[in-house]
Design a protein around this nucleic acid. Structure first.
Lengths: 152, 152
DNA sequence: GGCTGCGATGTTATGTTGTAACTTCATGCC
DNA sequence: GGCATGAAGTTACAACATAACATCGCAGCC
């Protein structure tokens, strides 16, 4: 699937990888951050900040404000632990926070399932097409809306 | 800029082209629709539905609800008169409603200026990468965030 | 003329997503 | 203890989007 090899983390392994990556970037891995990360990783499709706030609230037995979740998500996105799916206003945990990619999301319009592919050839082409028009690309957003194999 | 040649409309010409395209798709070109289209075309960067509602309200001297604007924008997007910039929650008039493209937006994070390129080679590659994973692509969303030549 | 059907628009309300400003809490350090 | 700092809580609000229902205007028909 990916052009190069890298390790895909899952479950506790993923959480540990996230923790390591975050700490390497000089940030703390707090229990609140862990809960947010695990809540997000527990969804099988992109989750909104409010979805996460609700999940954490439930798990926690107390009210957690969306606000706090946003703060943490922003931090996570900056540290590559989490990606934002722009066309869905939602977030997904990054299965390999330890390597940096422009990534491509395939978002099913029926069921919301979102799969993630890395294709550096495509993203490089997009970046250079942008550069050719005098634009300095920072972050390509490449998402494909359509139907997943199950819904098709 | 574009891979193939097509006519870029502007000003009144663009409005007429939009009208023609919309009518060809079996919809009416009402005065309200014209006002919304012209308001959008009058912005030099992507405009939100609320921006447009405000512009039309001002031009009209009466309050126009965002709601009505959304309805018309949805119609326009469906008829290819207008494109939605997902990563900006905003809309732009399509300079050539008469031909259908997956299109690529370059969005400046500083000034909001958004330029539009058509590169069918890229979009075809993206579509086929999606197909290769069993996904049926319907609408690629390809946007590049970065800095425009002026802001760089 | 008056009735009816229909598409467009208006109106009001509400849901969802995202930020801002300020407070409180926990921890480490002096 | 007192204080600095960063995390998290609280409250308020701004921005984006949709839903439900009322009204208007016009074409077709009796």
């Amino acid at each position: 699937m990916a052009i190069h090899d890298h390790h895909e983390h899952a479950g506790n392994d993923l959480t540990r990888a996230a923790q390591t990556t975050l700490e390497k970037s000089g940030e703390q891995w707090t229990s609140m951050r862990e809960r947010v990360f695990e809540a997000l990783a527990g969804f099988d499709k992109p989750a909104s900040a409010y979805d996460i706030a609700e999940a954490v609230s439930k798990a926690e037995g107390r009210r957690v404000a969306a606000n706090s979740v946003y703060r943490i998500l922003d931090l996570f996105v900056g540290a590559n632990l989490v990606r934002r799916v722009e066309s869905a206003n939602a977030y997904v945990a990054n299965a390999h926070p330890d390597c940096l990619h422009d990534c491509i999301f395939l978002v099913c319009d029926s069921c919301g399932q979102t799969t993630h592919i890395d294709d550096d050839a495509i993203t490089k082409t997009v970046r250079s097409a942008a550069k050719n028009t005098g634009f300095s690309p920072v972050r390509p957003v490449i998402e494909v809306r359509g139907k997943c194999a199950d819904c098709d």
